[in-house]
Amino acid sequence: MTEPTPTAKLATQGILARARWHPLEFVFWIVAFGSIWFAPNKHLILTEIAWLALFALSLDLILGYAGILSLGHAAFFGVGSYAAALLAKHGIVTEPVLALFCAGLVAAVLGFATSFLMLRGADLTRLMVSLGVALVLRELANQFGWLTGGADGLQGVTMEPILGLFRFDMFGHNGYVYCLVVLFVLFLAARRLMASPFGLSLLAIKGNPLRARAIGIGVDMRLVAIYTIGGFYAGVAGGLLAQTTAFSSLDVFSFDRSADLLLVLIIGGTGYLYGGIIGAVIFKIMQDYLALWSPQYWPFWIGLVLVVMVLVGRDRMTRWSEPLRALVNRLDWRRTPS
């Protein structure tokens, strides 16, 4: 075996550095799991945050890493949601974890099939194609009322206990722990994947597809792969919604849901995986708080806040957290002082 060249060494170090856990990340997940105990009466809204975060994470994978703009991500969410609800309703797969996996797979198949459409054309075309796919699916779900319940939603879904042990209780406790664990596991997988050479090659494609192709990266194959994975994630998020509410309605496919998701990701920031989660937390809490405070006019306030956020600029918002980051970096024992 030959000694690696200095450049190769540097590259390896770079990749490894990306994979290393930042101390703030530990804090983040400790707080997240801590919420199980310190906010027991907020579990229902936290459940929504958890699946929304996973959903946003899936969009981050395709938008933040591969640069695919989508306004129809709800298509996968919806398919996953109906798949999970139907599997439970007809007793095909009754164990929720397995059913959730199946729901993700169904959405992944859809992601794979539609990814070839997304390969054609650039941003605007992709936007339209993704939007179109979601609209088509919504209408299909509406037309196949015998299967989906049409505009009435899919009623009469009963959920079996998770792993045969933990019932979805009234208070939403087990449901929340379940969603959080699923989010965490899938986050770990995404983190691992995005820190790998595959993830880096996606970033290269996002930066400049032409150049990426020129240096020998198989662009199309990678886009298909990440779109399929994104579909899987979104499907699982939809499945979580269906399982925790024991219900699915046409609204899962709605344009609003895709648009809201883009907002969530914009609030949190793209391309670092936590963006979706942080965005989901801010978006849901803001929405819930405003809707409680002003049930009639909250959309006005939410719009205003979003405009202000964009005007102030996200860059500036990240800058606010700079001192904290600097402090943590200084305390980080693993870093060699420079």
Binding site: L44, I45, E48, G153, L241, T245, F247, S249, D251, V252, A291, P295, Q296, W298
Partner: peptide
């Protein structure tokens, strides 16, 4: 407010 969405009504 449910914003006319049944899932919201349930939650």
């Amino acid at each position: 407010d449910t914003a006319s969405v049944p899932d919201n009504a349930k939650r």
